[in-house]
Amino acid sequence: MAFEITTKTWPGKIPEITLGKDKGGGFRTVTIGGEETLPFHHFEGRTANRPVIALEVPDSDPENWIELAKEPYRDVLDNPVAWAKRAVDDFGADLLCLHLRGAHPDRGDRSAEECAELVRTVLDETRVPLIIKGPGPSDKQNEVLRKCGEAAEGEGCLLASAVEGHYQTLVATAIAYGHYLVAETPIDVNLAKQLNILISEMNLPPQRIVIDPLTGGLGYGLEYTYSVMERIRLQGLGGDPMLQMPMICFVGEETWKVKEVKTTAEDQPDWGDQRGRALLWEIGTAVSLLISGAGILVMRHPEAAAVVRKAVGELMGEGN
């Protein structure tokens, strides 16, 4: 009996989303989505765009990061604009994730106006699309993201994140100023769908939503995220329009906080060299989420990002 490949096609398709704004002068956009098949199943369907990698840019010195993660930015820790430029120019970020952590009342309580100014400067100076991540679901986040959204009108930014109970202001902001929205729910297909419905009912088109299925890092819930993403993608391709969004995974923040990454080789000799172990912790999380359906990976360490970028290239069938 000879072997013949049997292929599968799907009724659903993931719509394409183009982040950023093409205004000439070296400004870049990034297009994600467009999958008509399971991740990287090129033998049976089209994957229109490669998944992209965003690097994290904290708005202020991230005092809770370990040394290893700060190392590439040692001299610009308190200069988010220089940090952002380096992430793009030297480390090849496709886009940036500006984390407005300093706007949190416990971390400096930076004003919405200051945040908006920073967003403007980063946009003008780096020329890549921007994910604007607020300080966490709260009234302050709503205020901050509204001001930032206004300052970045028409720039096609991705605002993060709308959650159950805190989404209305962000939806209105995305509609008013032409942005995209991350909809975050805790590792559950039905909750993801429900939030997308609520957001769509406020008239933000589903093609403007990116799902954050919530990342459990390697060893800390990764398998749950992995499976929920596979299920979301299967249902989306199966035809459910409320689950056809591209997915984003905040890989960096989930991996760099865990003990296996923070512990030195002196403290745990049998775990081996900390640097390789830590980078692999981030790479392993990223690659597994890539093959379960991520369209945007938000990563922390440029070296880990470089290895994952190479993996994306191979998975897209480039090179040998």
Binding site: R277, V307, K310, A311
Partner: peptide, 30 residues
């Protein structure tokens, strides 16, 4: 690291056995 990223894919996507011709002690915990 590149070898490890390929091993990640192999583990997720169905490989029953992975032979590593190159390895470092820090690869194993992750």
């Amino acid at each position: 690291l590149t070898v490890s990223s390929a091993a990640t894919l192999a583990i997720c996507k169905y490989a029953s056995i992975v032979i590593l011709d190159r390895y470092e002690p820090w690869m194993f915990l992750p």
